[in-house]
Design a protein around this nucleic acid. Structure first.
Lengths: 332, 332
DNA sequence: GTGAAAGCGCTAACAC
DNA sequence: GTGTTAGCGCTTTCAC
């Protein structure tokens, strides 16, 4: 059996309460008792029981995070930022990977709630199909959405201003004299894909850039799907647009790969843009012109919202859209 | 306040015990009571309290995992594999990122132990400096090391047969007629770096490939450090080796980038090899020749060891080295 | 088949 | 400053 507070107290010759007080630093204790308890604890290898502690205190000092896919470097960057920020408050982060599956996502959400985390940060993998689970979780514990969000304003959200992002990208293309552009995105319905598609269309209209339904290629947020999409543009021959705007960097990396394989020069024959600014973006050939997401800033805002006292104005559905920054490299 | 079992029982008109039996499916209950409890539970939105449950049952059905860096795609691939395997047993995985910091690693390990996870999977970021924390955690809960391991045989380990991996890579180079090779690795002391360096040296000796201290470049497991290392080889001019063997794919990607930027042709002027077979490895220019780690197999073995009944022969320090597979692409 | 009661290990009143 | 007492919400004997 694991050693308990009672064991420590017994050995130190004090009451359980006193032992608790020194080990949890909750109140001042006489130097003698202090020393005795500490000594007994180390001698016994006392590790504490966080489960009992959590049950009694009704809090765990842990926050849960659920991301659509841990294989997507953008989300790991986000996780990294959240962890780093969280660490300053002495809490730990439990990360769960939904693996792009709403069922798995729902399971993780329920599990985190049941485990009594003090808060949840989630990027719901799919719009409406994620809604029920997010609403359910939000009913039990403070929850804020990061990057993606479900349609209804059931919980706060922090993410990128996708409209501005698309504006920056398309504006850059216009500046280069591009007059026609295609769009590659993930076909799954979620807030990111929707906003970016709409933003792309608007921006093209504004800058007088021609678009065409045949140039809108649905995929998933993976390099492999980007390769497939890129191949489609190669097949198009001279009917292809002067640029391909991608909804994220993974797709752009794949598209780039396929276009180059198809013998096209980037950006001379086709310009390519991404979105995220992954670390890899600068190491592909040619280096990717993209838009950077302010992940650190996002993490800070998310935790600020999460820690908002429940008493203060809990207007649910606060939306914080952070501004992106254009990163010009060689691809466009 | 959250709704408890008592609330459900009250509303269903049964005892707490009966409600518990229905909700935990622990014993058969009369159909009437069964229905009443289930109805009351949904009406009240009962979510259960995993903390109380865990305290009483002395288990959490959760396993913790600590990786050196979530920014390294190899570890996320590993996490993915472990999660996928774990899911089949109905348990959840809590992932912690040590961010290459032994202090953070130790904190996470302690936190997981205190939180009563049923098991821990850890890839210790640094050899000896990780030992104390790993030993401490292993003393409290079943623990197995994955990929990296601390020097002492304090806990089981599952990983790659690094010697064989280096043999495959160097053998491939020899096959191509390479007669001299440099080595780029992370300078931090851990089992992976040590084994791979030794394996490289041995294999070169066996295949009659010349090495040189000046060609051994220490770095960290990042693309950026690979770029720096690659630049060093460019500076070497004609003194450079005919091949650069990298201890992982991130380094190889960076080295490739720098060599190309330096005007060298790969593999004609310099061959480059990696290790891991990240998804990204096939999309760099030129596609990377590397060695694949059997992540799925690793995950299975890790969980098998973790779930070994404590009663059975607990010979600590079982080491399972899985065989790698050479993946030949254009870079070597 | 059902319920009363004990208790997992800890913290927080509340006395002293 | 210290200890006694009463739970946190649940599962599990043990009677009925």
């Amino acid at each position: 059996m694991a050693v308990t507070l009672a064991d420590v107290a017994l050995r130190a010759g004090v009451s359980i309460t006193t032992a608790s007080r020194v080990l949890a630093r909750s109140r001042t204790v006489s130097p003698g008792a202090q020393a005795a308890v500490e000594r007994a604890a180390t001698e016994l290898g006392y590790a504490g029981n966080g489960v009992a502690r959590a049950l009694r205190r009704q809090r765990t000092d842990a926050v849960g995070m659920v991301v659509p896919s841990i294989r997507n470097p953008f989300f790991t960057a986000l996780v990294d930022a959240v962890e780093r920020t969280l660490q300053t408050t002495g809490r730990v982060l439990y990360l769960c990977d939904a693996r792009d599956d709403v069922e798995v996502e729902a399971r993780h959400l329920r599990s985190l709630v049941a485990r009594g985390v003090d808060g949840i940060v989630v990027s719901p993998c799919a719009d409406d199909r994620s809604t029920a689970a997010v609403v359910e979780a939000a009913a039990h514990v403070p929850l804020v959405q990061l990057d993606r969000h479900v349609p209804e304003p059931v919980a706060d959200w922090v993410g990128l201003d996708d409209r501005v992002a698309m504006d920056l990208v398309v504006g850059r293309l216009a500046e280069r004299g591009v007059r026609s552009a295609g769009f590659v995105t993930a076909s799954i319905a979620n807030s990111s894909t929707r906003e970016r598609a709409a933003g792309f269309a608007d921006a093209c209209a504004r800058f007088g850039i021609r678009t065409d339904p045949r140039w809108t290629v649905p995929a998933a947020f993976t390099i492999a799907d980007g390769v497939d999409a890129g191949a489609r543009f190669v097949e198009l021959g001279t009917d292809r647009p002067a640029a391909v705007v991608c909804a994220d960097d993974l797709l752009a990396i794949g598209v780039t790969h396929a276009l180059v394989a198809g013998g096209l020069r980037i950006p001379e024959d086709v310009a390519v843009t991404g979105l995220d600014d992954l670390e890899f973006a600068r190491y592909v050939t040619p280096p990717l012109t993209t838009v950077r997401q302010p992940t650190t800033r996002m993490a800070e805002e998310v935790l600020r919202l999460l820690d908002r006292a429940p008493s203060t104005d809990r207007t649910p559905g606060v939306r914080i859209a952070l501004p992106p920054a254009l990163v010009v490299r060689a691809s466009a």
